[in-house]
Every structure is written in C-alpha cells, then in structure tokens.
Write a protein that binds this DNA or RNA. Structure first.
Length: 806
DNA sequence: TGCCATTTTCTTTTT
DNA sequence: GAAAATGGCA
C-alpha cells in the first residue's frame, strides 16, 4: 500500500521551503540531537525529510535507519510521506511503534527470548481476564487486591524494568502483590503469551543479555529517530539507550564503538500521558546522558493566527516545569477566540450545532470542524444534538474493531488453533456460544490443570463424567478445525471458524445481532485483504551494503541507484532464515497490535468528535473546546496536586493549538454528570488567557431564567463583556434561544417531497418501517419512523437513505 | 446452567 | 444515565 512514486528528480529540493531551524535540524551532523518542536511547527516534516536527506546523500542505507513512533497512525504517516519523497520501498524499513518493533525483534529471536514462535499478545482486556483467572485459581481476594489495580501494578513494574525479584518490598501488601506478579509471569510463560509491557521488557532483556545480538543491532541502526519523545517511559528510554549503544552496555572489550545516533523530537508542553508512565524528564536525561550537543527549537508555527497562539502561549506560561519555548507566527492575528457561556450542557450542544450549520453555510467542510472534550461521557449530549439536526458526525474513541466482543470471540478460536496452550482464549471460547459448560465444570478442569501444571486443553483428557464429555467435545471440535484448516487460505480459515464454532449462527439467531454479524463479515474481509498488506515474505537484497549498513556505492544519484527496491533485512546472528510466521499467526499479531479504526464508515464529510487526548497531532480549521468548567477541565481528579494540574494545562494547550482558523471555548452553568445535575464554575483556564485575544459571544441577557437560583455561579465579568451582543447581533445568530433549556423550535415549512405519513419505507440498517410524522424542509427535513425491530427513530432525510416500499 | 434483577462505578489511553 | 459486574433464583 505504500507503493513508492517512481518518477523523481533526485536533487529536486528535499530541503526546499524549510525555514532555517528546520533546515538545521534536517541536515544535522551524525550526532545525538534533541529537537524541541512546538505544536504546528512542521515536526513530522522535519523527521521525514531528515530520513530522506540521510538516504539521498548516501549517508545511510534504508536498513540502517530506525524510526520509532507511538501510534500506528504516526508510523503510517511517516512511511507515506517518505515514500512520496523518495522512490523507496519503505515496507522493509524499521519504521514502527515501540511495540511493533519489539514484536519484530522477539519474533526474529524467539528462541533466545525464550518464547514460542507463535506467541500471542494479550491486550489490556485479555490481561485483566488473565489476572482474574489467576485469582480464582489461587484463591486470591479480589477485594483486597483488586485485579485492575494489580494490572496497573504489573504494568508499572514492567515499565520500570523490574521483574518480581527486583521489586523492592517494604511492606506485607507489596510482598503479596509481588507474589501475584510472579504467579502471573509464570502463567503467561506457560501459556506462551505476552502483554504489552512484556513486549518492551522482554526485547530489552534480549538485547541486554545477548552481546552478539545487541552489537549486531547497534552496528546496524546508525540513525535512530524518535517521535513524541516526551511520551516515552523509563523502559522505552532504556531500550533506546541500549540500541544506540550509549551507556553501560556498549563495548565490553573496547573493540567496538557504537555508532548509532539518536534524534529525539518532542515537545514538553504537549506531554499529556504522565498518568500512564510517560516521563518528560527523559528529555533532560537524554541531553545529559547522551552528551547532546545539538538542540534545536522549532518555534515557528504554520498553523494558527496570533490570537490563538497568544492564548496558547499565555496559558502554558503558567506552568513551572518547562524547557522554555514560545510559538510565533508570521500570520496576522486571525480571528479572535470565541467564548460562549451556556446555561446547560444541552443548550451548549444546540448552540454548537447552529454555529456549525453557519460554518458549513460559509463553506467550511464538516471534517474540518472538530469538537473536543475532556472526557468521553461528554460526547453523548453533543451526539444527540447533531443527530437531531441531521448533521453527519464521527466519534473517535470507544470500542475499536478488534476489541469488539464478537471479534474477540472469533479471535479466541483462531488463537486456540495457533496455540492450544493459550488459556485466556480457551476460557473465552469454551462456552461461547453456550454449550452447557458451566462454572463447575471449568473449576474441575482448572483444578486438574493446576495439579499437573499443564494447559487447560491438556487437562481435558484427565476429566471424567459430564464435564469431561462436554469439554472433550469442544476440544474435538477445535481439532477438527485444525485438520480442516490445513492448506486453506487465511480468509477461508476465518470463515471455517465462524461456521464451525457456531459463532455466526449464534449472532444470526440474536434479534439484535445484525451489527455483530456484520462485524464478523468485516473480520473475514480483513483477513482477505491482510496478506496483501503485510506480505510476510522474505525481502530480497537490493542495496549493496556492508554489515554496518553502510551503502557501498557512492551517492544514489551518481550511481543511478534504485531505492525503489525491497529493503534488505540484514540477518542477525540468531535469525532463523526461511522460518516464517504462518499467515494466521501474523494476522493475530496484527489484530493485537493494531486494534483497528473505531468506525468502518469512512470518507463521509462529517463533524469530528473526540477527546482532547485523541486530538493530539491533528489539526482542524475550526475547533470547539467544550465543557470548560472546573471539575471537568481541569478534571476534578487532577485539581489537587500541582503536577497533574500542570498536565491538565498542557492538555488545554494541546487543545488550543489544534485550531487553524477559528477557535471556540464554551462552558455551561449546569451539566448532567453521573445522572445528576451539577453546577460548575467556569474553568480557571479562562483567567490565564489574554483578554485581548478573546471575544465573548454570550448575550448579555442570558441567565438562569429564574429556574436555578443556585450556587456561586456568576456571569462573567470584566472588560470582555464589552463584546456581548444582543440577540441576533452581529454574528447572525439568535443566541437567546440557548438561554432556555428548550430545544430550538424547528421552522415548519412545506413537508419534504417523496414521503408521506403512514408510508412504508425501507432503511438499510433498521429494515422496514412506517413514517409517523415529518418536519422541517431541505437539509433540516426529518422523519419520525417506526421500525418494528428497532423502535421509533427520528431520521434526517438528508442523511438517511430511505427507499419507499409500495 | 443461565437468566434476570440489583448494585456499583464512572478521566484521559496506545500498544 | 448507563454499562458492566455481581448475586440470587428458577
């Protein structure tokens, strides 16, 4: 999919249009360097251009580069951009996420890593159920040691590079936790599975403990580039250090001087993942421990006008721990930052929708309008408002494809085929769809397995009675599948499993299972197209390189070297040549490491809804930041200590800097939260923004309408009120209607053509239904339809595809 | 064993 | 307010 562009002008300005700082960063000498890249300063461009420049000037071959990102999306983006710059087959290059690259290392050296070749990866859900299973088996009290907390503890230890034996035990409680950690480790090892943390830690240990392997990769990766460096945790930092050959594990005998140089790109002001172990301190540690001589700040922002940037700068200057950086722009002030105060979350959402309609009328694309919120729960009200208005929207976050229950069920069967020892998958599949295997039978089985220390599937034969017969039948079914799958294509195997396991039939029988069947079909599609994407075949040697990864020829240009060739993967000492992962195993790995997009429907021009966290790295013409209230943003759990408050502020900084042209901030006096109405004060962050950049667009006469005489919630005061407009003021919208909790009354015009009340219509998702009523016209036209299977729905006629049924 | 009712919890999240 | 998890009962 990353097919390179073939026509290319070799020296046609890779470096064209770079500003002086960017140029300096791209053409840095081969030494460690830190790039402090502000939001919108062209960070990704610098990273990819740097790689392209290194390749084009013949300083390194594609095999000598490692580029690490945090998300698959970022990795793909990098590869796509790189492929567009150079005629290069990026597929074989070591560009990927930390976990993806670790997986690659462990697959190549699975024996040294003490793993089965087909080891499976536990995602967060799997890990939790694995721990819970452990609890049952060893009678551990979930009340005293909550499994969730334990999961967090284990992850934390691994992030710090600590095995159970290395954890410092100070109190009995920690002792017990470490014991459980130890048991968990044994269970994973026995089952041949690794969790995400293990992926990192195990590959770190692999490099640490095997001199030839480590030195091989140290020689090979002459340039290591890391994106979003501020998000790295302790272990990831150590991993990089190990690969770069800096520190204790470099040359032992002095014969080998490691040469890998590290280019770290990051922004301390955008560090928003401390809550999951990210250490901003890695940036200063990096400068110190690597003896970084080159530090470049990218402060020129190409995204937003100065009103938006000044707001961001002013806000973030309230943080104490900063490396120091100020964004500037050559663009003018741009539009002011609009601030709106609503009386309720409901009113806030309706105001937003009307504002959006206006923006769309003005020619903005819907996908260039984003709504950002602090927590996912806030999306519901907004979704309702958008839905009622018939405005297409897309919510990011939530359940992703490979995390859906039906998909995980299917994957459990597939994993069992690949690795019968995978007890997590066994437990998931054994009684789903229900086949009369209950808790008691499984308890017997688990006892038997524990007694002999074998996997659940191996313990079945020792079971007698009804339990033995039932579970035996299940296992026999798996074995039949295993025979039938021989010689079959991946897609066929998946289809086979869906049929033979009874999963498809089970969901087809379910009245509400239509979506799930659809997803299962989608899984078959994913399996079909998978091979063509990953292509786990061997790559052929394309470039003449020496063992160090140096290109042996002169510069590509002078030699007419064709970079558009598969990248050579230099065999490491331990690499089993010829041994390849089965397509199924590769597919399962893909499913674990890449949870897939949230929603299948792509391409439609829709409003973008997401949390602030999810918005990092993205940009939009128009951005709404909603729920700017104390307790929400900053979040109540993060208001108490200074560090987490500063993280909230960085979060706000990230949110503000997403906007290119227009930025709205809104807060509401009341909000439904946990089923209760809460009265919130407006966020303290408003006080930290420069007044001259803001424009308050809430009408003067707004208020509580006599309804809520509550709390210390006051209207905003100060000079900003000078901007208040009366109803239907200069902004063209009548804001007064948002000041009551009632929905805007739709204007009744001629009923939309084609449909009539009592008419029968067909909808792709809801099936056949009867029109109950119609309202609105044109783009706003809506119909109330009764679907026997799904109930009464309001559908926007400009969005819903309805076909009349005679 | 499995279904239904009650209780509980509720930031952010990629891999 | 809603989803998930637990617990009691048929």
């Amino acid at each position: 999919m990353f097919t390179a562009i073939t026509q290319q002008s070799p020296d046609a300005g890779l470096l064209h249009n770079l500003n002086p700082e960017q140029l300096a960063a791209v053409t840095l000498p081969a030494e460690h360097a830190l790039i402090l890249a502000g939001a919108g300063s062209g960070k990704t461009r610098v990273l990819t251009t740097r790689i392209a420049w290194l390749l084009q000037t013949g300083q390194v071959s594609p095999g000598g580069i490692m580029a690490v990102t945090f998300t698959n999306k970022a990795a793909k983006e990098m590869m796509t951009r790189l492929a567009a710059m150079l005629p290069l087959n990026v597929r074989g290059m070591w560009i990927g996420t930390f976990h993806g690259l670790c997986n690659r290392l462990l697959r190549a050296h699975y024996k040294l890593a003490n793993l089965p070749q087909t080891f499976q990866i536990l995602d967060t859900q799997d890990q939790l159920s694995s721990i819970k299973r452990l609890y049952k088996q060893f009678g551990i009290d979930d009340e005293r040691y909550p499994a969730k907390q334990m999961q967090w503890f284990i992850g934390g230890c691994k992030e710090d590079g600590l095995r159970p034996a290395q954890v410092v035990v100070k109190d009995p409680e920690t002792r017990k936790k470490v014991e459980i950690y130890q048991l968990y480790e044994e269970q994973c090892q026995r089952e041949g599975v690794v969790d995400f943390g293990e992926l990192m830690l195990r590959s770190y240990e692999l490099l640490r403990d095997n001199d030839p392997i480590r030195e091989h990769y140290q020689r090979r990766f002459r340039h290591i580039l890391i994106d979003e460096f501020q998000d790295t945790n302790k272990l990831q930092y150590a991993w990089i250090k190990m690969l770069a050959g800096t520190g204790a594990h470099s040359s032992v005998d002095g014969a080998f001087q490691p040469t890998g140089c590290v280019l770290a790109v990051g922004d301390d002001d955008q560090s928003i993942y401390a809550f999951r172990g990210a250490r901003v301190g890695n940036m200063t540690d990096f400068v110190r421990e690597f003896g970084v001589k080159h530090q470049i700040k990218l402060e020129e922002n190409y995204r937003s006008g100065s009103n938006i940037l000044d707001s961001a700068n002013a806000l973030i200057s309230n943080n104490s721990k900063r490396l120091g950086k100020n964004l500037r722009t050559a663009q003018g002030p741009g539009e002011p930052v609009r601030v709106f105060e609503a009386t309720s979350d409901f009113a806030e959402a309706n105001w937003m929708v009307d504002e959006m309609k206006q923006l769309v009328r003005e020619g903005h694309e819907r996908k260039e309008i984003a709504v950002l919120y602090r927590s996912n729960a806030q999306s519901r009200v907004i979704e309702t408002a958008l839905f009622n208005a018939g405005m297409p929207y897309k919510v990011y976050g939530g359940l992703r494809f490979f995390e859906r229950a039906e998909i995980k069920n299917a994957l459990a069967y597939l994993r069992l085929l690949e690795n019968p020892r995978d007890d997590t998958s066994f437990m998931r599949a054994v009684n789903f769809p229900p086949r009369g295997i209950g808790a008691r039978s499984l308890e017997l089985l688990q006892d038997a397995a524990r007694a002999t220390g074998c996997a659940l599937s191996d313990a079945v034969s020792g079971l007698s009675g009804k339990a033995g017969a039932n579970i035996g039948a299940f296992l026999a079914g798996i074995e039949v599948l295993n025979e039938q799958r021989q010689g079959k294509k991946l897609k066929e195997i998946v289809e086979l499993v869906l049929k033979h396991s009874g999963l498809r039939a089970h969901y087809e029988a379910d009245r509400e299972g239509a979506d799930r069947v659809e997803n299962l079909d989608e899984l078959v599609n994913a399996a079909e197209s998978f091979v063509s994407i990953e292509g786990f075949g061997r790559d052929v040697v394309a470039l003449p390189v020496d063992e160090l990864g140096n290109v042996l020829t002169q510069s590509p240009a002078s030699q007419g070297l064709d970079l558009n060739q598969p990248v050579q993967d230099i065999p490491a000492p331990d690499l089993e040549t010829g041994e390849t992962l089965s397509p199924l195993a590769a597919f399962l790995t893909h499913a674990a490491l890449e949870a897939g997009d949230n929603q299948a429907q792509a391409g439609q021009d829709a409003i973008q809804l997401m949390t602030v966290h999810a918005s990092k790295g993205l940009e939009f013409d128009c951005v709404f930041i909603t729920g700017m209230e104390e307790g929400l943003f900053p979040h109540e759990n993060s208001m108490t200590d200074r560090d987490s408050l500063e993280e909230e502020r960085r979060l706000m900084y990230v949110a503000i800097t997403r906007a290119r042209k227009r930025l709205y901030l809104s807060h509401s006096q009341t909000r439904m939260l946990h089923g209760q109405t809460r009265y919130n004060l407006k966020s303290r962050f408003f006080e930290e923004l420069p007044e001259e950049a803001l424009k308050w667009i809430t009408p003067k006469h707004q208020g509580f309408g006599g309804g809520f005489g509550s709390a210390g919630v006051t209207s905003n005061s100060g000079a900003t009120h000078a901007y208040h407009t009366s109803a239907r003021g200069q902004f063209g919208t009548d804001y007064s209607k948002y000041t009551t909790a009632a929905a805007p009354v739709p204007v009744q015009k001629t009923p939309p053509g084609g449909l009539q009340v009592k008419q029968k219509v067909f909808h792709a998702k809801f099936g056949e239904g009867t029109v109950l009523s119609l309202e609105g016209s044109g783009d706003d036209a809506r119909a109330q339809i009764n679907f026997p299977r799904h109930g009464v729905k309001w559908l926007a006629l400009s969005v819903a595809k309805l076909t009349p049924v005679p």
